[in-house]
Write a protein that binds this DNA or RNA. Structure first.
Length: 120
DNA sequence: ATGTTGACGCATG
DNA sequence: CCATGCGCCAACA
């Protein structure tokens, strides 16, 4: 796969830096990497994670060492319901394990959990 | 090469 | 609030 392209690696690098209990949005990551990849492209980068490990820049990226669950959409919700590789509630459970609270609509308060430090 | 699809976002009605 | 359309970029048939 061509998931070792610089833009994809940039996504992985940023996602790996997200601290516990914090999250980033797809659009934000897209902006952070200088729009080299659109929000959809970010989604594709993460989509390539499950299954086999991706090696780039001498580092190995995999769903096990990349906190993909800390990436949410702009509504503070999740969109993993369409994906068969991952159970629908997996992301929610992983985030809850880090202290993120959800309302009855499975949405979070982005303002409280957004990783502001990463935007510097 | 072309059309379709997708872990998305934003503007518009 | 919900539905649509458009932009976006990469993978795939």
């Amino acid at each position: 796969m061509t998931t070792d392209s610089p833009a994809f690696v940039s996504v992985y690098e940023i996602v790996c830096r997200i601290p516990r209990g914090k999250v980033l949005t797809y659009g934000l990551i897209s902006h952070l990497i200088g729009k080299r990849l659109s929000a959809q492209g970010v989604g594709w980068a993460l989509n390539a994670l499950p299954g086999s490990a991706k090696v780039a820049n001498g580092k190995k990226y995999h769903s096990q060492n990349v906190p993909w669950h800390r990436v949410v959409n702009s509504k503070g919700g999740m969109s993993t319901h369409k994906i068969i590789d991952i159970p629908p509630d997996m992301q929610k459970q992983l985030l809850e394990a880090e202290g993120v609270k959800f309302d009855n609509e499975d949405k979070m308060v982005l303002d409280d959990y957004l990783w502001h430090e990463g935007l510097v």
